[in-house]
C-alpha cells in the first residue's frame, strides 16, 4: 500500500492547522489556568504544588484548588532534590518536636 505525496501533504496541513490552533489557545489559557489541571480539576503534575489537595476518594489523583484567577507558577515545587531535602527537614522538625 502506498500514499500519494500531494494528497498526504493536504492531510498533514490540516493536522498542523488543528495543532497550531491548539498550541495558540494553550499559550493563552496557561496565563491563568495551570496546564497540569485537567477538566475534572485534578492535578496531573509529577511534582508538588501548594494548590494540590487530597482527593475525597482514596486512590484518586490529587485535586487542584487554584481558582484560575492569577499566575499559579510560583506555587510549583519542582526541584526533586530540594523537595527531598525539605521532606527530611520536616521529618527532623517533627522528630524534635515529639
Amino acid at each position: 500500500m502506498t500514499i500519494d505525496g500531494s494528497e498526504l501533504e493536504k492531510r498533514l496541513a490540516r493536522i498542523r492547522g488543528i495543532f497550531v490552533d491548539i498550541s495558540q489557545h494553550a499559550e493563552k489559557q496557561m496565563q491563568l489556568r495551570c496546564p497540569y489541571k485537567n477538566a475534572q480539576c485534578q492535578c496531573t503534575a509529577k511534582f508538588g504544588c501548594r494548590y494540590q489537595r487530597k482527593p475525597t476518594v482514596g486512590g484518586d489523583p490529587l485535586l487542584c484548588s487554584h481558582d484560575d484567577q492569577f499566575d499559579f507558577r510560583s506555587a510549583w515545587e519542582s526541584d526533586p532534590e530540594s523537595r527531598e531535602k525539605m521532606r527530611h527537614q520536616l521529618r527532623d522538625i517533627r522528630k524534635n518536636r515529639y
Partner: peptide, 14 residues
C-alpha cells in the same frame, strides 16, 4: 478535540 479545547470544555492534559 480542537473545538472542545477552544471552547474550554477540555484542557491541556486531555
Amino acid at each position: 478535540v480542537g473545538i472542545k479545547f477552544r471552547e474550554n470544555f477540555i484542557f491541556v492534559p486531555e
